[in-house]
Structures are given as C-alpha cells and as structure tokens.
Write a protein that binds this DNA or RNA. Structure first.
Lengths: 339, 339
DNA sequence: CCCATTCCCAAAAACGTTTTTGTTGATGTG
DNA sequence: CACATCAACAAAAACGTTTTTGGGAATGGG
C-alpha cells in the first residue's frame, strides 16, 4: 500500500489513454464495450481507486454530503438519524461530513462555511427534535433538505414525523383496548409536537364519539419530575382516567412513578402509552412501555435520498414536504380498563 | 453568492501573483509583512475562501479526519464522542467525515475505503464501549488513533476510560458514606470493563481493610431485567449489603426495581452508585442516581488532538496509550448506611 | 565599483482527475 | 471515386490550489 495507483498507471497497463480509462469507468464517452470491459478489469486488477479530491475538483461533484445538526449529544436520536443518512449515502457512493452547531448560530455558520469550502454537493439541515427553523443565509445557493425541521420555504424538501398521526395511533390503541377515559399528559413548549399531538388526541376522541374533557388534559415540561407531578394530580381526581397518553417517554416514566406512588399497577389498574420509543427507557421500565416510535432512521434515509434525487436533477419533481408515519411499538403497559 | 471568488481574483485585486496570495494566506514563503497583510485584507474583503478540494489535491492535506465507529445508534454516547471530536477538529481547521460499520466488517472496510478515496488525513477508529480490537488491514498506512478501544499495537495511540479508577472512585464514595458491606452487581461479558471494574472494586475494599466476600458479588448481563434479578437475590440474603455498586446504569435501574420490590427505600435503606452517568436514566430515576461518568466528550477531543499532533510530526513523541479519568456525578442515591 | 548575497516576488510546474477538442480509419452514399 | 458521416479513441485543456524554480532589485563587502 506504498502508493496508490492512479489513472495513468491503469492507462499504461491497459494500453489506452487516460481519457479512455476515465470514460470506461464512468460510463461516459463512446467506447466499444470490449475496451470498456477490458479497462475495467485492468483497473480492478491493479486495485485502482479514484482520488476523490481530484475528480471532485474537475467534475464539481465531491460526492460529499454535509450534515449539520443542532445538537448531536444528549439524545440517542441523533445516532439513528445519522445511521439512516449514512447508509443511504453509502448506497449512492456518497459520504457524510458532519458538523454540529450545539445550538450556537455562530458555530453553525462556521461549520457550514467549512462544509462549503470542502465543496459538499448538498446539505442535510437537521434538528434533533421536530421544530420550525429559519434557514441560515449561508445555505442559500446549495441544495438543502430539512430533516425533523420545517420552514415556510416551499422550495425546500423537508421531512418531519407525523405528530398528529402518532398521537392518533396511540389513542386508537388505547381505545381499542376498551378505554374511554383517557388522560393526556401534554407538553408545554411551543413546538409542532405540542400542537400536533394534542390535535391527534382530540381527533381520535371525536372519531370515537368520546367527549373532550378539560380535566383530563395537563401540560407540563416534558421531563420525568414534572410528568410525575402532573400524573399524580390527574390520578388523584375523583373520576380518574383508566389510561394515560403521554407526550413522551420521559413524562411516561414520571407517570410510572406516579402510579407507583398511588398504588396503581400497570397495566392492570392503569394503561400507559407514549411517544418516543426511547428504548433504553421503554425497555427498562417495568412493565415495558408501549410507545410510538419516531422514525429517525427512516427520516435520515429519506433526506439523503431526496437530496440525491434533487442533485440528479432527476425527474425535476417539485420539492416535497412530507410527514412520516410513526409506528406503534407494543410492550406491556397497555391492558383493558379495570372493571 | 453566484460564484465563489478564487485565488486569482484575489491576486488581481491585490496586484500580486497567485503565488504571493497563496504564501500570504498560508504563512509560507518569504514575503514582506506589508504585502502579507495587504493581501490578507484584500482576500478578506473579497470574502475569499479556499477550495479545499484543490488545496488538498496539491498539498496532500485534505484537512478531513475520518471517524469510523462500530455503532452510532442505540447509545447516546456516540453523540458526545462525536461532539468532542468535532469541536476539537474545528479548532484545528479540520472537519469530520463519519462512517459507521454497524458491526459489519464488510461495511467497515467499504467505509474505510471511501474515507481513503477522499484522502482523509487520518482516522479515529472508535468503539462505542471500551473493547479490545484488531485493526482492519485497510488502516495500515494511514495515521490512526483508537478511541474507546485498545489493541496490542504499541505504535498506535489510544484512549480508553480508566475502568479500574472509575470503580475505585465509586467505591470510595460509598465507603466514605460509611458503608462496609457493599455488593457488586457485575457484568458477565468478557470485556475490559468487566475486569477493570471488578479489580477497582476489590482494590478499594483492600485499601480500606474490608474483606472480599464472594456472596456480595454477582455477574449478570448488563441490562435492566437481569440486574433486577441479581439485585433481588443479593438483597434477599440474610446479611444483605447496605449499598450496591452497579456495573452500569441499566443494572442500577434493575437494582432500583429490586429495592422497590423488596420494600427498601433509596437511599435510606439502600445506597446505589453505578457507572455510565446515562443522563436520561440517571436523572429520571427517583431518587436521582449517583453515577460515574465515562468521559466520552473528552475522549473525542483527546483523540483528535492526539491525531493532529501526530500528523504535525510535532514533537515526534511516541504514541500514547492513555486511560482517562472518570468523574463522579452525585445525585441522591447515596446516603449513610441504615443503623 | 564590482561581485556575491539577500530579500521579495513572479512564472511555471504539479496534483489526478474530467471534459473538450482532435484525429484516424472505416463505412456509407450518390 | 469523392465526400460526408461515424465510431473509437487520443491529445490537450481545465479545475484551483501549492510547491518548485527563477529572477530582478537592493544591500553589503572588499
């Protein structure tokens, strides 16, 4: 592995010009199939691999996709998004260059500038939870796809979880199990998930002819302790709900603790379903927490594939803003309502 | 932003040659400080930014660091490692290209090959938990630093957590709180952490003149359910321990559940400390779980900095294999032993 | 005052590809 | 048979830098 073999060595070995080698490998130009194949096998035999710096320089295609996210630590979501993106990229002969802003727009601009200097072909602009964003100016002029983020730009493709559908699925599951009095432990932040999940909750109730009851809805910070408090208050009500739909797994964990404090067994006395499918929590809880999964891996894949399509100019289809389905992951926290 | 300005535009604007521009910006060559400064300000004014593909092609320095890991999803550790690495890289004017093998060596080889084609300057070969690795052949010939991984290669730098020290710190904390009968809920896998943490447990006991007691040590899979079972068995013993040191947070969560089942309150009846500082769990548990943090962010930083030093040929210091300190993060799961 | 340094800077080559433009011999056409 | 067309390939230019080599003017020493 002392020195990588270049296109000229291949050309010499095959007895053709470098032009022919380049065309053979890229499928361009007009060559006889015979030479094309011969060159290919010679290249293979010499273990030739292109220098992407050189090819990118000339062809204006670096085969690098920039991935900028706001916050890569603190959540295990990032890993799945990245994994999906990377696997899809690999399938396209692309590779990911990642940059993290840590929620600092100065850092973000610097990171994007670095990506641009490296001539990334396009950028995935990702958030670690669904939110509305304003696109940084540095991104004008480069193909961009939004991931777990939405904006008012209709000229950009984006993918976010179907929040309303997720809540709806969760509620359907509880209703099918026989529950009619279902509490919602909601979130208080002004983010799309807050609105979407509440809407899904209400829609499912309406669909099944269940009246909406103010007293069955609370809003709190989406963390364990506030969730616990909210759940405790709700469970202390005279006509307590037989099931709780939680904004996310952390709140659900608080609900578990509240149930324990109230002496209620899950799922016999109380059913719980939530959103996140945060496996380390959901699997670890006793009993296992039934939860709606956010499609992080799939969003990662979709974003890359969409970007690839737009880069290919392929089927100059209009940009798409999609909301992705969120599947239910059943564990043991849901049962029929107590008699 | 229609067209990025190149070095020749800068040269023209400054009234010098491209050579001079290149030297001015890189600090090379011998130029008068006057021209150097003038060129710099002209470049700045024109908003010049180098094309890294071109500069890398000629200089053989792409300023890209490859990051290959075995498994980027499933754990939130990856994010912190990546964050540390990326921040350190940014400080060196480098950027990260990430590739994930998903534990598949074929995929790994392909990923490494892609990195090599992009002419990364060096590679961080990372694992998501401390383990011994055999270096893939593809990595011979490129500067490499191991992260959270150790090998028998003494010519490679590596950084891993100080497993024994971590266990020792945890034990010191319990012993200082007054505990003498301390159970260890260990792990069963054949990995460095298993050996190191057990060694740290024993060392701390010995240091404080506490006899090692077989019956206070169990080994189980490092997940919640097995941890719960192991803890239950241990707590059912006649002379039960007053504190538990857990291999990791998942087992600790099992211990919490076992304590609950046994009617023991934490920390009044039972103290618990573990290793991982897996915040989503540790913060969410009631009471908060005191845990030793694995220095993922710091390992990420160190690996990049070490790699940069080796790339610079800087202080041709020998490769270093270091074990990094793991700090204690106190929450509410430790108290004095019951009377 | 002449020659050798030294100080600045510019011209040209190089990096490894892709793309554009040329060239050659074969084939078809009227 | 002269000419246009075409297939198959090669030569050369180009991408935007960095590095190597060259060279003129100022400086210093004898």
């Amino acid at each position: 592995m002392s020195k990588r073999v270049g296109i000229r060595e291949v050309a010499a070995a095959a007895g053709v010009s470098v032009t022919t080698v380049s065309h053979s490998l890229s499928g361009g130009g007009q060559l006889s199939d015979a030479t094309r194949e011969r060159v290919k096998s010679v290249a293979e035999g010499l273990n030739y691999a292109p220098n992407r710096l050189a090819s990118g320089l000339r062809s204006k295609r670096s085969q690098i996709i920039g991935f900028v996210s706001d916050e890569i630590s603190t959540t295990p979501y990032a890993g799945n998004v990245l994994l999906g993106a990377q696997e899809a990229a690999a399938a396209n002969d692309q590779v990911l260059m990642v940059v993290n802003s840590n929620r600092n727009s100065k850092v973000e601009d610097l990171g994007i500038e670095a990506l641009l200097q490296h001539r990334v072909d396009g950028i995935i602009y990702a958030r670690m939870y669904h939110q509305a964003v304003e696109l940084p100016a540095a991104l004008s002029g480069i193909p961009t796809v939004l991931l777990d983020a939405s904006s008012d730009r209709t000229d950009l493709s984006s993918v976010v979880p179907d929040e309303e559908g997720a809540a709806h699925t969760a509620m359907e599951h509880l209703i099918e199990a026989g529950h009619r009095r279902i509490g919602y432990l909601g979130n208080i932040d002004d983010i799309p998930a807050t609105r979407g999940r509440l809407a899904g909750y209400r829609a499912a109730l309406t669909e099944h002819g269940i009246a909406f009851d103010e007293s069955l809805v609370t809003m709190s910070e989406s963390m364990t302790a506030p969730g616990r408090d909210a759940a405790s208050r709700m469970l202390a009500q005279p006509n307590r709900p037989t099931a709780l739909f939680c904004f996310n797994d952390r709140i659900a964990m608080g609900a578990y603790q509240a149930a324990q404090l109230a002496g209620l067994a899950i799922p016999n006395d109380l059913s719980i379903v939530s959103i996140d499918n945060f496996e380390v929590l959901a699997d670890a809880l006793l009993p296992g927490l039934t939860s709606i999964a956010l499609p992080h891996y799939e969003m990662g894949r979709w974003a890359i594939e969409r970007l690839a399509a737009e880069l290919a100019g392929d089927a100059e289809s209009a940009p798409q803003q999609i909301r992705m389905h969120c599947p239910l992951v059943q564990r043991q926290s849901v049962g029929p309502p107590p008699r």
